[in-house]
């Protein structure tokens, strides 16, 4: 009984984290049609930003919620700036190039940013556990969980709702959706496609940094943390269907559940649970679970 509730909570908590990491990636893919490997680096940049912001707010003696707001604001701001620079200086020049080439450009960016975080912080690990510690514990099904981790599930759901609302219920969101479907027609209809793309990439990068910032209090922020994240985020996005926000949610749920189940019941399989799920889903539904149908070109 307690195993069941533990599996559910662990799965939800892991899935929430997966969604945070994946949502920016899938958004960027939807609009710009590029698989952004640098997303992993955005994640670690965000985590570093959060560590410094939380560190500064703790020194200043600010309250927990201000620490968190400072961390998120710092991460989002840095993410947006890096996103803007990347899109304008690098990716903007590569639209229309073959996909693999753009992929490599983002990989190069990943290597550079990953090293840059090391340059700023040195080789060791950094911590920002204060907000998580001060929020305390909550008992669920006989086990203790930090309030922070449980709250992340809510944050993640909220983020999903916001993104869905913006895309489906606002003017800007409809413009973005139009660009996703056909950027040429959208341009003809008077939508500033270039600006939409830049803005989307900025939001995507900011979401990547946000994910890092929200995770930072739980972990040791250390060099090279982006490598693992990016493959797992890819898996989530691909399972759910590239470019689909509800897909990312579903993908995160499935992979989160798979990992929690294997960790509890079959620890031997945990190391490749994610990839087994990915291979399994793609074998049955090649375009992912919730991908929009695509026409075959003739």
């Amino acid at each position: 009984m307690s195993t069941l509730s533990a599996v559910v909570v662990d799965a939800a908590s892991f899935a929430a984290w997966l969604f945070l990491v994946a949502v920016g990636l899938t958004l960027v893919f939807g609009v710009l049609r590029l698989l952004n490997i640098a997303h992993g680096a955005f994640y670690s940049v965000g985590a570093y930003a959060a560590v410094y912001a939380i560190g500064a707010s703790v020194t200043l003696g600010w309250a927990t919620w201000i620490q968190l707001v400072a961390a998120l604001a710092a991460a989002v701001a840095i993410g947006a700036v890096i996103g803007l620079l990347t899109e304008r200086c690098i990716l903007g020049r590569l639209y229309g190039y073959p996909e693999p080439l753009v992929l490599i450009a983002t990989y190069a960016l990943f290597l550079i940013l990953d090293d840059a975080t090391k340059l700023v912080s040195g080789g060791g690990s950094l911590y920002a556990a204060q907000p998580r510690d001060s929020l305390g514990q909550i008992g669920i099904g006989g086990l203790q969980y930090p309030v922070y981790d449980v709250a992340l599930i809510g944050v993640s759901m909220m983020l999903a709702a916001i993104v869905w609302f913006v895309l489906n219920r606002t003017r800007v969101g409809r413009c973005v959706t139009a660009v996703v479907f056909d950027s040429e027609i959208s341009a003809a209809m008077g939508i500033h496609v270039g600006r939409i793309k830049t803005a989307t990439f900025m939001v995507g990068a900011a979401l990547g940094c946000l994910a890092g910032a929200l995770t930072a209090p739980k972990i040791a922020v250390s060099p090279g943390m982006g490598v693992e994240v990016i493959v797992i985020a890819f898996a989530v996005v691909v399972v759910g269907g590239l470019g689909s926000i509800p897909g990312a949610l579903l993908g995160a749920a499935i992979i989160g559940l798979a990992r929690a189940l294997t960790a509890h019941l079959l620890p031997e399989l945990e190391i490749f649970a994610v990839y087994l799920v990915m291979a399994g889903v793609l074998a049955v539904r090649p375009f992912g679970l919730l991908a929009p149908a695509q026409a075959r070109r003739i």
């Binding site: 890819f234 190391i271 087994l276």
Partner: peptide
């Protein structure tokens, strides 16, 4: 026989997945 059906990013991701499963098994 099974991968030849896939195209684009799905081919990339599926080849990646298979290769990573093998990586996981090999470390064990």
């Amino acid at each position: 026989s099974f991968l030849a059906r896939y195209r684009g990013i799905f081919f990339s991701m599926l080849t990646l997945a298979v290769s990573m499963v093998v990586f996981g098994i090999a470390t064990k």
